[in-house]
Every structure is written in structure tokens, then in C-alpha cells.
């Protein structure tokens, strides 16, 4: 296999903003003293007049973004996922979600792969809190290509969108699929299979693809679906796949409570019940360490997906 490029999706976010900024004078970016980490600094360099540093005040930033959206701007409010979806939850709910304002929340440093900063900064609950807000679109791109496409789609969509990006460099995978097309709310079927369906989001999509390769070598045919838009979720792709394989495993860099796994369970239990097992953070806090090692420790890896699949198939 040729050498795989590795790019953190937060970097994709910064570059995508800067690119879109050229085309769209109404795009404005807010940050809370994290421009170098969220990579909105890339946009700031190109468009200093359209980058507002709010200082370390996330609650204020979310509502400033709400206000900006009512006077003709399309704000991207950026900070770490833990602050965007946690600290400022009620601001996002009441001042962005409730009036359904056209605000995009660019949340970087999502998940356990944040690494060394440790549990206080590893946000494994953002899908749960953001999904619960009526009308909020929740997106978690898998790689650089998807992250850039997601930012563009979020700009074009009218309404609130929560975008989750990661700190750690992740392999670029979507350049291998010539038909790749990003559409909000549409899952992507990468690989057809007959024995089991693996549904993944974010950086775990690459792990799911690796797992499917390993399983194929062992005679197990796994279907792999990328759900980049966790809300609204693509029910059709899930139901069709469940009809075919009859067994589903979900995998995400998020708590097993309230994330992709539960979203998939909600669809299938009501519309086409099949056994589902969830891979994710098992209702615990993380701790410091290198991102890739933490992912292994917390069971979010190709190996763990392979093991779960075999358990589920009784092999």
C-alpha cells in the first residue's frame, strides 16, 4: 500500500474556512483564545477583519455568534468540543438552537484522542448533548477530505450545525473512493458485505475499514458504512444494510451513551430490529496519554472491532 497521508481534521477545518472566506464575504469566524489550536488562525491570517477573538469566554461567544447571524453573517464559532458542547450547552440550546439561527459550531479536540491534555479536555459526550437539541445538525467527519466538504456543506445549509473535528492526525481515506460525494444526512457505503454491518463515524471509519480487511482474510464479509452526519441520521442506508446482514456493530470515539450507537439503535429498534453492539467509551472518563495509545486502551481500534465482530458471529 502506498504511504497514507495523515492530517488532523482541525487543520482541514482551518483551511476550509480560509478557502470559503474568499468566496463568501458574509462568513465570519469566532474563537476563544484557541486560534492556534482550532486552526482558525489560518482564516485569521487571510481575513483578519472577519475573525473575532472573544477571549476565554465561550458562553458569550455562542450568543455573539447568534446575534451576528441575525444581521446577515454566517458565523463559525470555534473552540474545543468540551467547551462548545459542554460549558456553553445552554447558550447553544437557547440562543442558537431554539431560534434555529444560522450558526455553525466548529468544535475541535473532540474525543479521547485529544491525548495528553487528559480527561478534562477529552469530550466524549458532545454527540449526546448536541443531538438532543431540536433542529441541530451534528457532523463528525472521518478525514481531511470529508472535513473540508463538511465545512462547505455546513456553510451552504441554513440552520445550526455542530461540526466535530479532532486534534490527532488521521489517515486520509476518502481519496481512495472515486465516487466519493459528501451530502449532509447521507451515509456512505464503502464496502459491501453479507455477514455483518460495521457503522462508524469520525476517525473510527478508518479503523472499521482496516477491520473489514482483516475480517475478509478470515472469511468474514463485513459491510462498512460511514455515518458522518449523526443527526439527521441516514435511516435508509442503515435499514437496507440491516436487512442484508442482520447484525450491526457501531463504532465511535464517543461515549456509548447518546452517540452514534444509540442513534443507530433508535432507528433499527423501531424500523427493522436486529442485534446491535456498540463500541465506544464505556461510560468512563479518559486520562492522559498519546492519542493512538488511548484509542487502543479504550477499545476504539480495528483489532477491537474485529474481536467484537467475531464475538457477535460466534466465531
Amino acid at each position: 500500500m502506498s504511504e497514507v497521508k495523515r492530517i488532523p481534521t482541525r487543520e482541514s477545518y482551518g483551511h476550509a474556512l480560509a478557502e470559503l472566506g474568499h468566496e463568501h464575504p458574509d462568513l465570519i469566524v469566532l474563537d476563544c483564545d484557541l486560534s492556534s489550536a482550532t486552526k482558525t488562525g489560518i482564516f485569521q491570517k487571510a481575513f483578519p477583519d472577519r475573525h473575532i477573538n472573544c477571549g476565554i469566554a465561550e458562553a458569550n461567544m455562542m450568543c455573539v455568534a447568534g446575534g451576528l447571524s441575525t444581521v446577515g453573517y454566517v458565523p463559525f464559532a470555534s473552540t474545543f468540543a468540551i467547551f462548545a458542547s459542554g460549558r456553553a450547552y445552554e447558550q447553544v440550546r437557547n440562543t442558537i438552537g431554539y431560534p434555529h439561527l444560522n450558526v455553525k459550531i466548529g468544535a475541535t479536540h473532540g474525543g479521547i484522542s485529544v491525548g495528553e491534555d487528559g480527561a478534562s479536555h477529552q469530550c466524549n459526550e458532545d454527540f449526546a448533548t448536541m443531538r438532543a437539541i431540536p433542529g441541530m445538525v451534528v457532523v463528525c467527519p472521518s478525514d481531511d477530505i470529508e472535513a473540508r466538504a463538511a465545512v462547505k456543506a455546513a456553510y451552504e445549509y441554513v440552520g445550526p450545525v455542530y461540526l466535530r473535528f479532532g486534534r490527532m492526525a488521521v489517515p486520509v481515506i476518502n481519496d481512495k473512493y472515486p465516487d466519493y460525494k459528501f451530502e449532509l444526512g447521507k451515509g456512505i457505503l464503502y464496502r459491501e458485505g453479507t455477514d455483518i454491518t460495521i457503522v462508524a463515524t469520525g476517525l473510527v471509519v478508518a479503523e472499521a475499514l482496516t477491520a473489514a480487511d482483516i475480517l475478509a482474510n478470515q472469511g468474514i464479509s463485513a459491510e462498512v458504512i460511514n455515518i458522518h452526519t449523526i443527526k439527521p441520521i441516514d435511516e435508509e442506508i442503515l435499514i437496507n444494510s440491516a436487512k442484508k446482514t442482520g447484525k450491526v456493530i457501531t463504532a465511535e470515539e464517543h461515549s456509548i451513551i447518546g452517540g452514534l450507537g444509540e442513534a443507530v439503535c433508535s432507528v433499527l429498534s423501531e424500523k427493522y430490529p436486529v442485534p446491535v453492539k456498540r463500541i465506544g467509551i464505556n461510560d468512563v472518563f479518559g486520562h492522559s496519554g498519546p492519542g493512538p495509545e488511548l484509542l487502543k486502551e479504550f477499545g476504539i481500534s480495528a483489532d477491537n472491532i474485529v474481536q467484537k465482530v467475531k464475538e457477535m458471529l460466534g466465531k
Binding site: A59, N60, C63, G67, L68, T70, N94
Partner: peptide, 25 residues
């Protein structure tokens, strides 16, 4: 009604967003 409010403290932030946006224009 120019902004939905009810949760104290949030409206004044939203008014800052309106003001900075209008000023930039």
C-alpha cells in the same frame, strides 16, 4: 422580537453580536 431570550445573560451577548456585525458593515 429581534432575539429570543429568557435565559438571563444571553441576550446582552447576542446584542453584542448584532452590534459588532452592524458596525463591521
Amino acid at each position: 422580537v429581534d432575539m429570543s431570550t429568557g435565559s438571563l445573560g444571553q441576550g446582552v451577548s447576542a446584542s453584542c453580536g448584532m452590534a459588532i456585525g452592524l458596525k463591521k458593515r
